[in-house]
Design a protein around this nucleic acid. Structure first.
Length: 598
DNA sequence: ACCGGGCTAAACACTA
DNA sequence: GTAGTGTTTAGCCCGG
C-alpha cells in the first residue's frame, strides 16, 4: 500500500526537539493538554504541570516573608530543610537578604517581648528576668547600661531561640506563595514553606558540637559518598564543597526521604504483622504501638503530590478528550512518567502510532493494574494503550480461562478492550500476528478446534531479562515519580548508584552500592511480575490443562538451546504449561484481573 | 556510531 | 479464487 489516507498517515516527526518519546500523543486534536499546562488561571497547578515547568527550567518567583525572589523551579520545589545558609545567600540578593533578616529580627523581637529574658547576674549565676524586672532595673540604674545589656540579652536569646528552632527541625511559617510564570502570567500556588531562613544567622550548632549525623567513623555518611574526612572541620569543608545545593544533592535528599518513608511503611507493616502474631499467640503486646505514619514528609508529600489526587478516585485519568488519541498518564503511585509529561508535544504520522518504548517496558508498570484502573477509559477513548503488542497479547492470553486463545480471540480481546484497536485493523492485526510469530514466548498449539496461542513465561522473561532491575532507567522512572523531572540523566544515574538501593535492599545497614541495586526486584510490565520471578526458576507456570495439549505444538526456532537445557524444566513447548498452578501461587500473580477488566 | 527492542509494512506460503 | 493464518524480512525510530 503505497498511498495511505491523509487522516491516517501522520508519521512521527524525527526532529523531536524536546526529546519527546514517540509514544505519546497524536495531536490531531490540536494539543488538548496545552491549555492545561499553562495553569489555567484558577490558581491551581497540577503536579504534572509543575514537572513540566521544572523540566523547562522555569524560574519561579518565590515570596519569602514578603520578599519576591526569582528561583529556579528545581530549587523552589525543594524541601526547605535542604537549603543551607550559603545556598540561601545564593538565592537571595544582598538587599533581599537584608530585608529578610530584618524581618526575622522583627519577628524575633516580637517573640522576645513575651519571653522571659535570660541574663547573667554579677554572681555569674543565671536568673530569669521578666520584662517588668528589666524595666524596673532600667528605672533604678543606669538606663544606658541597661539598654545595652538588654540588647545583648535579646541577641543571646535570639540566638538561643534560633538554635532551638534548628534543633526542632525548622519553624513553620505562614503559608508562602510561589508564583510560577506561565504564559506571561503568574500563577500562584501556596506552599507552607518552613522558616528555613533562620539558619542564615548562625552556623549549625551541630557542626561545632563535634558530631554530625552525616559524619561518623571518619567518613562522610552522605548517601553514596563515604569520603574520608579526618576531622569535623575537614568534613564540614567537604560537606559544603561536595554536597552543596545542586540537583544531585537535592535528588539525593528526596530519595532519602523516600527511603525513610518506605522504611516507615515497612515498619508499620512489620508492626502490624507482629501485632497479629502476638494476638494469634495470645500474647499481650508490651504496649500498643500506633502504626507509624510516614513522618516529617509533609513537604515532600505536598510537593510530590500524586497525580491521582488530581482526579476523582476510581476514575480513569483521561489526559484529553477521547477524540484525541494519546498515551494516557500513568496513575500509579507517585509515578508521573516523563513520557506522560510529553504527551502534548508530539505528532504522529501513522494510522497506528508507534507503541515502542511503552511504559510497560520502560516504566515497569504492571499492565494489569494499568488496565484495571483505566479499563473503561481504554474501552471508550481512542487512546493507544501504553504497552507493547507482546505484553498485550500475553495479557490477553493469560487472562483467558484456559490461558490460550485463538488468533481471532486475541483480535476480539484487543477490540473489546481498546477502542483504539477498533480501527486500522489491518495494521495492528498484522502486528499481532507478527508478534505472535516473532516472539518465542508465544507458543502455537494445535487444538481440536484449530490453533491456539499460549504464553511461555520463561521465554517471556528471557525476552526481557531483568536487567532493568535497579537500572538507571528504573531509577529514572522513579525519579520522575518523585518529582525529579528537572534532573538530568547523570544525576539520575547517580541516584541509582547511591541512595536508591536502600529502597529495596533487605539489609538496612548495608551501605549503598551498585551491587545492592541488583537485589532490587521491580515488576516488569505486566500481568504477573511477581510470579515471573518464580517462573524463571521453572517451578511455576500458568495453568493449562493437560488435555489441551493432545495435539502437536509448533516450536519456534531456538537459538539458545544451551540456555534452555540448563533450566530445570524446559518450557519450550506448551506442554510444559500443564503444571497446575497452586492456588496460593495463583494469588501471587499481581492482579491478573479478569474480573477487574470486565 | 552501534546495537537491541519495538513497530509498521509487505511479501510469501499454507490452508480451509 | 479468496480470506484467514502464520512466517519472514526490511526499514525505521528510539533509547541505552
Amino acid at each position: 500500500m503505497m498511498v495511505e489516507s491523509a487522516s491516517e498517515t501522520i508519521r512521527t516527526t524525527p526532529s523531536n526537539q524536546n526529546g519527546v518519546s514517540s509514544l505519546s500523543s497524536q495531536s490531531d486534536g490540536g494539543g488538548g493538554r496545552e491549555g492545561g499546562s499553562n495553569g489555567d488561571t484558577n490558581g491551581e497547578i497540577s503536579p504534572v504541570d509543575l514537572l513540566h515547568l521544572q523540566q523547562q527550567q522555569v524560574c519561579v518567583c518565590v515570596c519569602i516573608c514578603g520578599t519576591y525572589v526569582d528561583v529556579p523551579v528545581s530549587m523552589a520545589m525543594m524541601s526547605p530543610q535542604m537549603i543551607t545558609p550559603q545556598q540561601m545567600q545564593q538565592i537571595l540578593s544582598p538587599p533581599q537578604l537584608q530585608a529578610l533578616l530584618q524581618q526575622q529580627q522583627a519577628l524575633m523581637l516580637q517573640q522576645v517581648k513575651h519571653t522571659p529574658i535570660l541574663t547573667h547576674t554579677h554572681t555569674h549565676t543565671r536568673a530569669l528576668w521578666t520584662q517588668s524586672q528589666a524595666d524596673k532595673f532600667r528605672c533604678i540604674g543606669s538606663k544606658q547600661l541597661a539598654f545595652q545589656q538588654q540588647l545583648i540579652q535579646m541577641q543571646q536569646l535570639q540566638q538561643q531561640h534560633i538554635l532551638n528552632l534548628q534543633r526542632q527541625g525548622l519553624v513553620p511559617l505562614q503559608p508562602t506563595h510561589i508564583y510560577i510564570k506561565a504564559s506571561e502570567k503568574y500563577v500562584c500556588i501556596t506552599i507552607s514553606l518552613l522558616l528555613f531562613c533562620v539558619c542564615l544567622c548562625l552556623p549549625s550548632h551541630e557542626e561545632h558540637a563535634g558530631s554530625h549525623p552525616l559524619y561518623g567513623h571518619g567518613e562522610c555518611k552522605w548517601p553514596g559518598c563515604e569520603a574520608l574526612c579526618e576531622d569535623m572541620g575537614q568534613f564540614i569543608k567537604h560537606l559544603n564543597n561536595e554536597h552543596a545545593l545542586d540537583d544531585r544533592s537535592t535528588a539525593q535528599c528526596r530519595v532519602q526521604m523516600q527511603v525513610v518513608q518506605q522504611l516507615e511503611i515497612q515498619l508499620a507493616k512489620e508492626s502490624e504483622r507482629l501485632q497479629a502474631m502476638m494476638t494469634h499467640l495470645h500474647m499481650r503486646p508490651s504496649e500498643p504501638k500506633p502504626y507509624n505514619q510516614p513522618l516529617n514528609l509533609a513537604s515532600s508529600g505536598s510537593l510530590l503530590k500524586r497525580d491521582s489526587d488530581a482526579y476523582p478516585e476510581g476514575l480513569p485519568h483521561p489526559p484529553t478528550s477521547a477524540a484525541t488519541p494519546i498515551t494516557p498518564l500513568r496513575q500509579g503511585p507517585s509515578v508521573i512518567s516523563s513520557s506522560s509529561l510529553h504527551t502534548h508535544s508530539h505528532s504522529h504520522t501513522h494510522a497506528v502510532g508507534p507503541i515502542r518504548r511503552r511504559n510497560s517496558d520502560k516504566y515497569c508498570t504492571p499492565i494489569a493494574s494499568e488496565l484495571a484502573q483505566n479499563c473503561e477509559f481504554y474501552k471508550n477513548a481512542d487512546v493507544r494503550p501504553p504497552f507493547t503488542y507482546a505484553s498485550l497479547i500475553r495479557h490477553a492470553i493469560l487472562e483467558s480461562p484456559d490461558r490460550q486463545l485463538t488468533l481471532n480471540e486475541i483480535y476480539n480481546w484487543f477490540t473489546r478492550k481498546f477502542a483504539y484497536f477498533r480501527r486500522n485493523t489491518a495494521t495492528w492485526k498484522n502486528a499481532v500476528r507478527h508478534n505472535l510469530s516473532l516472539h518465542k514466548c508465544f507458543v502455537r498449539v494445535e487444538n481440536v478446534k484449530g490453533a491456539v496461542w499460549t504464553v511461555d513465561e520463561v521465554e517471556y522473561q528471557k525476552r526481557r531479562p531483568p536487567k532493568m532491575t535497579g537500572s538507571p532507567t528504573l531509577v529514572k522512572n522513579m525519579i520522575s515519580g518523585l518529582g525529579f523531572g528537572s534532573l538530568n540523566a547523570s544525576y539520575q544515574a547517580a541516584l541509582a548508584e547511591s541512595s536508591l538501593s536502600l529502597l529495596n535492599s533487605p539489609p538496612l545497614v548495608t551501605p549503598p552500592s551498585a551491587a545492592s541495586l541488583n537485589m532490587l526486584h521491580v515488576g516488569h510490565d505486566d500481568v504477573s511480575s511477581t510470579v515471573e520471578q518464580v517462573n524463571s526458576n521453572g517451578s511455576c507456570s500458568p495453568t493449562l490443562s493437560p488435555q489441551q495439549y493432545s495435539h502437536p505444538v509448533h516450536v519456534k526456532e531456538e537459538p539458545t538451546e544451551v540456555e534452555e537445557d540448563s533450566r530445570p524444566v524446559s518450557l519450550l513447548a506448551g506442554v510444559t504449561h500443564s503444571l497446575p498452578l497452586p492456588s496460593d501461587e495463583r494469588d501471587l500473580e499481581e492482579d491478573l484481573p479478569t474480573e477487574e477488566l470486565e
